[in-house]
Design a protein around this nucleic acid. Sequence first.
DNA 1: GAGTTGACTAATTGATGAATCACTAACCTG
DNA 2: CAGGTTAGTGATTCATCAATTAGTCAACTC
Lengths: 173, 173
Amino acid sequence: MTKFETKSVNRKSDIISAAIEVFAETGYFRATTAQVAERAKISQPYIFRFFSTKEALLLTALEVSWTRVIDSFRKVVESASPEQLETELIQAYVVILESYRNEVLLQMQAQTIQEESIREAMRGGFGEVRHMVLDAFRSAGIPNAEERTMLFLARGMLCNISAALAMPELMGI
Amino acid sequence: MTKFETKSVNRKSDIISAAIEVFAETGYFRATTAQVAERAKISQPYIFRFFSTKEALLLTALEVSWTRVIDSFRKVVESASPEQLETELIQAYVVILESYRNEVLLQMQAQTIQEESIREAMRGGFGEVRHMVLDAFRSAGIPNAEERTMLFLARGMLCNISAALAMPELMGI
DNA sequence: GAGTTGACTAATTGATGAATCACTAACCTG
DNA sequence: CAGGTTAGTGATTCATCAATTAGTCAACTC
């Protein structure tokens, strides 16, 4: 592990973190690569050493944000008792909403981008979460697992909006 | 009603309709006023006779889209029987999702725009819908009206995502 | 310690966009 | 029909952005 490699890896994740912040705050299309670079404390062209296009950076940022949710839920699924499963999943999501608000805001933005590569990434992330929750509900012997999964996801999406618009009256958790 | 006034009104609503389409398809920040003008079959500068800024046009487009939902729900609330209330509200929303997809996509975009004027418009629209549904559920004697309203809204938001990402497996209606 | 490699940036490019300006043509009114 | 008003546009402005190029400098290699 040379000094170079270490820096390089850090730079890449610096850029991703900066991109998540700037994209979430400003909006992906309005945000500029110069703003991302400034936040990451590098020069603007240097972003393109790690990401061939701005869109490639967005896709990586989305992957990070979905991994956050999926890993968090997986831990709950692997450890929670059947009775506590749904409660703990909800708690895990609340933690994400509070600690990684920008990642959620970025996912919400990406939901409306009509670009096939991005829609694919979003379908992938959403589908994986749904599948994991559904399997977990079934394994826990929860009746109407299909319906309960849908309601769980639906409440999550309403929480997103509640957080994004600062409407606490919608946060029914 | 002179010929002038009539034309002028038509132009304005032409522009709004075009803006809803173009903003929804392309994304508000990426979409250009030239694209909106082309869709409305007018010149680009002429947009600014009716809307002082691009953002003013967005706000008007959002108002139109919220009016669509609110008027539609009001009709249901004023006519439906207590037993059929929720079912008919859901049906009304499905119609909107199918017939005015672009307006819904625009609302979804606006949910993530961190600009106070836009957040205010979104809070206003969302709040009015919530209030109307909650009152109607209470008037209909539905138990746990608060909770049922939340679930109704939550399912609606999941339907939006299902439609936006083309994930029919999420459409649980 | 000459030469190579890797980290990083300044300067530039070629497009593009919101908004303004200056204008024409049609219409309407007295 | 003269003077004023409305509908509408071409051309321009000034700013901005993603991406490229060409390069600097420090560190490692042998």
